[in-house]
Design a binder for these strands. Structure first.
Lengths: 352, 352
DNA sequence: CATGCGGGGGAATGCGCATTCCTGCAGGGC
DNA sequence: GCCCTGCAGGAATGCGCATTCCCCCGCATG
């Protein structure tokens, strides 16, 4: 086709090709394309740019990374993209990262928290500039220690790291005030007249679930309400977990007038269970969740919840890893906002 | 600390360090760690492995990629991770990719389809082994041509590519049978007794929306139903788009007994609008959607829809890009399954 | 006119690794 | 006993690029 003839398939245009085409040296081509402290004569620069365009040149990112000694990769490790909680945070992080021309690499643990370790090691191998780990820490000292070691290794290799989770590892962290949010929710619900509560508490080893449960308990106690021990049901942190836990609660029997599910997805599962069992919603049982998942804002009755600025969590984490490193790990606290909706109407009179 | 002294921060352990520590050459260390056609004496191998472990060695992925001439990167380009449709597909793709020890890089266009071009070029620069582009093609010849050129460039550089979308570019594609699914839905709805339909048709330039609208129209016509011209309302392909389109439809006035929103998220928006306007659901207006988004399976009344195996779309795309290249671009068709639920009860009698 | 200086082009170097090529050694066949 | 073969370890090469170092050239100054 051209005087250079056919390229072998798989071979791509290199900077040297561009330089030759422009009739300049490789160094000049590099300077013309990337800028540099050194200046390039305008006419040469133009020739290089034109040649790159004509050859459809795209710099080899690996080679650049190697030559420069750093990358534009930011790793995002989370539990499950299909979960709206995580996908919202991911969207925020991706949006922020793309603005900074960073390449986002995503990995999902799908509930197997120990895989965070593998991904972090892999991202160290990638020489990722930064990593953001999103998701509840679990009650597991050994895992935590190993993760802390891996985090140190990553930072020692020059990478930045931030968590969106509990602050259990000495690193920059965006902390959601789960406890405070749940407490405020409980107090608001008591304000509506409820006194007896049940809790669908999710996975017992997830700190997020534990914190929300504990906070709710605090709020209820503080406001003079009550949670019977049998009215706390553990289970999955998922829709099905909520469904099953609600069924179990109904099987056990309860005096509660309001049930708090530790996240919205579970709350929706619980509402489904109530409906299937013929319990009138919300008159016979009020339901509240946590997160304010956008996709679930149209369920009926509209779900009382604690609104979290999910996308902001992601962007905040990106900001942290991009900021100048501080002496001490930073913590950015994010609070939720109680949103009372139809699923928890004011309790008119005590149960008949 | 060790006789080698402090490492400068940011410098990390290289293969040479490991080789020295193990008392072997770099070549032997490489062979011991990665395997090779050549064999390494067991005792040396062990020494290398031990040294790598002790030094917490993690191979520089960029350098490996450069030396090998290929990467394990697979790019995932989609519209918006926060949208459950895309996040489900992404989850399937990520799951499949992780099984193959591929690194997934994700990019979102957030509705600006022309950015697919940029991301594809960037992924070519990354020397990504494969790219998966998820999302409706748009009615825009010029954009399509430019994308096709970029796809060719990517493939010529040795990368594999697959689309999850309409088959508009000569490349492997997972095609959702939007048209057939919508047609089947329409016929099922007619089977319930409906004759007059409205359509919330979404963005007029999105082929997915167009195909679903067209298919629905076909089905209605075929089954003897009818869609008045004024009963097709365009708008956003989002929840708010559905909400607004439904409002507009009600403002215009309609004889339809059933409204089809071209995706579930829009359908939920439409249901919210109906509720706010005091239209009884589903007795005064039946509603159907498309996709069968998992998170929305618990809305009330339960939404009639066309179920798509979303995660499978993602895994199928990964399988395609990992399979041996074929002479001709492959097409894998995926059909939806009509799921009738409460939001479209049988129509008892003609409108009063 | 000679010297100094600054600007800019190009050759050379090295990033960390896989891989090829070379070399030495051991074992087997004649 | 000698040569050839096979095997495995090590030195060297190159992947594509940014960057450093070197040098040349043109201009200004004395």
């Amino acid at each position: 086709m051209s005087e250079r003839g056919e390229r072998t398939p798989g071979a791509s245009v290199t900077l040297l090709d561009v330089a030759k085409a422009a009739g300049v040296s490789l160094a000049t081509a590099s300077r013309a394309l990337n800028g540099s402290t050194r200046r390039v004569r305008p006419d040469l620069q133009e020739r290089v740019l034109a040649a790159a365009e004509a050859l459809h040149y795209s710099a080899n990112a690996q080679a650049q990374a190697m030559a420069r000694g750093r990358t534009n990769i930011v790793g995002l490790v989370l539990s499950d993209v299909a979960d709206p909680y995580f996908s919202s945070i991911a969207a925020g992080a991706i949006r922020a990262a793309e603005e900074e021309h960073l390449v986002v690499t995503m990995a999902c643990t799908f509930g197997r928290e120990e895989r965070e370790l593998d991904y972090l090691a892999a991202l160290r191998g990638q020489r990722a500039r930064a990593v953001i780990i999103v998701g509840s820490r679990v009650q597991n000292r050994e895992l935590l220690d190993r993760l802390a070691a891996e985090v140190r290794a990553f930072e020692q290799a020059g990478g930045r790291i931030a968590f969106v989770s509990q602050r259990k590892i000495p690193a920059d962290t965006v902390v959601v005030e789960n406890r405070g949010g749940a407490r405020a929710l409980a107090e608001a619900l008591c304000g509506l007249g409820h006194r007896r509560f049940a809790v669908l508490a999710g996975r017992a080893d997830l700190l997020t679930a534990r914190d929300r449960t504990a906070g709710f308990r605090e709020g209820v106690t503080r406001a003079g309400g009550r949670i019977d021990p049998g009215d706390v049901v553990y289970g999955g942190f998922t829709r099905d977990g909520g469904y099953e836990a609600m069924n179990e609660l109904l099987d056990r029997g309860t005096e509660a007038t309001c049930v708090f599910a530790v996240n919205d997805v579970m709350a929706v599962g619980a509402m489904a269970a109530l409906r299937h069992r013929g319990v009138a919603l919300p008159s016979e049982m009020a339901v509240a969740g946590f997160d304010d998942i956008a996709t679930l804002r149209d369920v009926t009755p509209a779900l009382t919840t604690v609104r979290l600025p999910l996308e902001e969590l992601g962007t905040a984490a990106v900001e942290m890893v991009l900021a100048e490193p501080a002496d001490q790990p930073r913590v950015r606290r994010v609070r939720g906002e109680v949103v009372l909706r139809e699923s928890t109407p004011p309790l008119q009179a005590p149960r008949a």
